[in-house]
Design a protein around this nucleic acid. Structure first.
Lengths: 151, 151
DNA sequence: CTAACTGCAAACCTTTTGCATTGAC
DNA sequence: GTCAATGCAAAAGGTTTGCAGTTAG
């Protein structure tokens, strides 16, 4: 638990980078987000804690984190625009289920994609490092509402 | 069968939209592309056939096609920048294997992801319509070349 | 004929960069 | 103290939009 909580800070230090207050704020936001945040949203939330934090700093911070592999950049299939979203890189790969009805994003667990990696490797010789699997469609609730939907 | 080949033009007409020469050019480019094209590349290639075609027209065309579901928009995990790529929506879902070494994109065949859809549906109640599965890593050739590489 | 489409130019929005200053270690 | 990181402002993509003229159906 505490391992998880401090991972970003720790790994930042481990990479020889400095833990500034601005970065602490961004880390806190990412770690406690209840949904996926795009850069602008991170910026706006960060500014509430430090009105002087600059947009460029947030972008640089997210870029740095991404290069270090601390966060992943997603676009969630552009279902809600062309923004890019950031999430802490999970220890285990997970899917994103993006509902085109309500825009909600589910991340069901499981580990059956492990076999996808080996299947791809066996069939093509390509060695997958990072997997991104997104599915858009209708969530249970939205399907319920429009029960006359096709397919 | 011929339905398939002319699908873009036909479906455009079916939607009550006009098949202009500019759109014909874009369709031709997408249908005959040997790699994934971003909007700017489509524009530059289109301009070779019609030097007067305007960038905005290409963007509008791609946007229209996307809204109609004729093409899909990809970002190929931003391995080669933040551009968006367009491909004709395939009748069968396929994976993109993006090599971080040489930037090549493979699209292996197969249909084993069908079971992913049903597995997701069974486990979560979410009904996937469009699947996007991308894996970045090293292709066979690049793995061969740098056998001493870290990563 | 006329609504859809295009070319043009300017605006827009998100992200990046050069530089002087600040601050973490 | 030193070098990384920040704030600032300006630029740099990439994409969109209002409008007048053109064109497919």
């Amino acid at each position: 638990m505490s391992v998880r909580r401090n991972s970003l800070s720790d790994r930042l230090r481990a990479a020889g980078l400095r833990l500034t207050n601005q970065r602490r704020i961004v880390i806190h936001l990412l770690e406690n987000a209840d949904r996926h945040l795009d850069a602008e949203k991170v910026f706006r939330l960060a500014r509430r804690k430090d009105p002087n934090i600059h947009r460029a700093t947030v972008y640089r911070t997210l870029s740095t984190f991404k290069k270090l592999g601390l966060v992943d950049e997603l676009d969630l299939m552009h279902v809600s625009g062309d923004r890019h979203y950031y999430e802490i890189r999970p220890s285990t790969f997970h899917i994103h289920l993006i509902c085109t009805g309500c825009g909600s994003v589910q991340e069901p667990g499981g580990s059956w994609w492990q076999e996808m990696k080996s299947r791809v490797y066996d069939e093509t010789g390509f060695k997958p490092e990072i997997i991104r699997l997104e599915m858009s469609g209708l969530c249970k609730a939205c399907r319920g509402e429009k029960s006359e939907s096709p397919t």
